[in-house]
Simulated assay, not measured.
Amino acid sequence: MPFAEIYLRDGTTPEYRKAISAGIHQSMIEVFQIPEDDFFHVIHSLPAENMLHAPVFWGIGRSDESVIIRMTFNVRPAEQKKALFTTIADRLVENPGLRRDDILMTILETAAENWWSTARTIDPETGFDTRMSPEAVRAGTIN
């Protein structure tokens, strides 16, 4: 049950915000092989004075269009997280046209037992939702 929070400055259109959310969700479907309906996003549209960041970070210029994406999900292997970062960035550059330099992503990992949603069933052996394919579960399980 991945959960995404998207932080950006006020003034964007609903279509722009939807494109960011869709890019994140499609990337999670592709990389994590989550079910299509496993979709929980919150978009925080903030006044400029509440969206603060260094104009140059690690030698890379950041614009006022910067977006911060915080994702929470069960523990995943480093390779899978790297693939998720790359896939999301590629999608957001394509649509809605973000600059790669304006995308900052972070992950909060949590144990499967820290999630709850009515009617959700967890496989006790894998800790993942029983609707996930065996391939997706193997890819998300740390050995």
Rank of each mutant, 00 (worst) to 15 (best):
E65L: 06
A54H: 11
D101A: 14
F39I: 06
V56W: 01
N74H: 09
T141S: 15
G61N: 12
R131I: 04
L46S: 00
V67M: 13
P134H: 10
Q80G: 00
L46G: 00
W116Y: 15
L84T: 00
Q33G: 06
D123A: 10
I103D: 02
A48K: 06
P47K: 01
I122W: 14
E109F: 02
K81M: 07
N74I: 04
K82M: 05
E30H: 11
V137M: 14
R62T: 05
E65Y: 04
R70D: 05
S66D: 08
R76T: 01
P47M: 01
E135V: 14
D102E: 12
D123V: 07
E94L: 15
L92V: 07
A89T: 14
I60K: 15
D101G: 01
E36A: 13
I88E: 01
T72L: 11
F39A: 03
E135T: 11
R99W: 02
N114G: 11
R131Q: 12
F40T: 02
H41P: 12
I107V: 13
G97E: 12
S66M: 15
H44G: 00
A112I: 02
D129W: 15
G61F: 08
G59E: 07
Q80E: 09
M28G: 03
E79G: 10
F32A: 02
L98R: 10
M105K: 01
F128M: 11
D64K: 14
F32S: 05
R120Y: 03
R70K: 14
W58K: 11
S45Y: 00
E79Q: 14
L104T: 05
D102W: 08
L98F: 04
W58T: 04
F40M: 07
F57H: 13
I103M: 03
A54T: 03
T126M: 10
I68V: 14
W115I: 04
S45V: 00
D90F: 09
R100Q: 05
E49R: 06
T106Y: 07
R76G: 04
R138H: 10
S63K: 06
G23W: 13
F40I: 00
D129M: 10
V42G: 00
K81Y: 05
T87M: 11
D38R: 00
S133H: 10
R138E: 13
G140D: 08
A136H: 09
G97Q: 11
N74V: 03
I29M: 15
R100T: 02
I103S: 06
R91F: 02
H41E: 04
M132A: 06
D37C: 02
V137D: 03
W58N: 09
I69H: 14
Q80F: 02
H53C: 04
N74M: 09
E109N: 01
F57G: 01
L108E: 13
N114D: 12
Q80H: 05
S27L: 06
T110D: 04
R131A: 08
V93I: 10
N114H: 14
T110R: 12
M51Y: 00
V75D: 12
F57N: 12
T110V: 13
R91W: 08
R76C: 04
L92G: 06
F32V: 04
